[in-house]
């Protein structure tokens, strides 16, 4: 991974821009070789991360900055996945506190972190350098064509018709 992001965008913490962020991430993931279902899941993970920042980091303030940076894993010519870094200027918290709740406790809310960790191969929270801001690094590796058996836990529970189209 080069130091300089291949894509870096700044958006305000307004939920109306979530769809634009999803479109961007999904479109780039598609060009890096992910199938439609994986693109949707990667977009979902980013959406959930942004929602958590807006809701918990910024207390639903609409005018705070969020940065999304994207790199291909591997090389541009032979991408092996996607790396997405999401940064904010919210109050720093202990990264260990970023845990999803138990799924046996069925109630509204609290699913975002669980979804992020389920969908992505790597999800690492850390404090940014300086007194404020958090950073979330997400990595999704593209299964190699020679590894048809590489299926995520979530994909393993999908209908067979979906498995046939999954990478």
């Amino acid at each position: 991974m080069s130091e300089r992001p291949h894509i870096r965008v700044e958006l305000l913490s307004n939920p109306i821009y979530l769809s634009g962020a999803r479109e961007l991430v999904g479109t780039v993931a598609k060009r890096l070789g992910f199938d439609d279902l994986d693109c949707s899941k990667i977009s979902l993970a980013v959406d959930e991360a942004l929602c958590n920042i807006i809701r918990h980091g910024y207390g639903r303030a609409l005018d705070r900055p969020i940065w999304i940076s994207i790199w291909p894993e591997g090389t541009e010519d032979a991408p092996e996945g996607i790396r997405i870094v999401i940064e904010d200027e919210a109050k720093q918290v202990d990264p260990k506190s970023m845990q999803g709740r138990s799924l046996t406790d069925i109630r509204p809310g609290g699913l975002g972190v669980h979804i992020i960790r389920e969908v992505m191969d790597e999800a690492k929270y850390e404090q940014r350098e300086g007194p404020i801001g958090m950073r979330l690094t997400l990595v999704k590796r593209a299964p190699r064509p020679s590894e048809p058996g590489v299926i995520t836990d979530a994909a393993a529970r999908l209908p067979l018709s979906t498995h046939r189209s999954a990478r």
């Binding site: 799924l103 069925i106 699913l111 999908l158 209908p159």
Partner: peptide
């Protein structure tokens, strides 16, 4: 659709 169904399954809510 499959994409919407996937999130129910990821959240283990498809049985709820």
């Amino acid at each position: 659709n499959d994409k919407v169904r996937a999130i129910f399954e990821i959240a283990r809510l498809h049985h709820f």
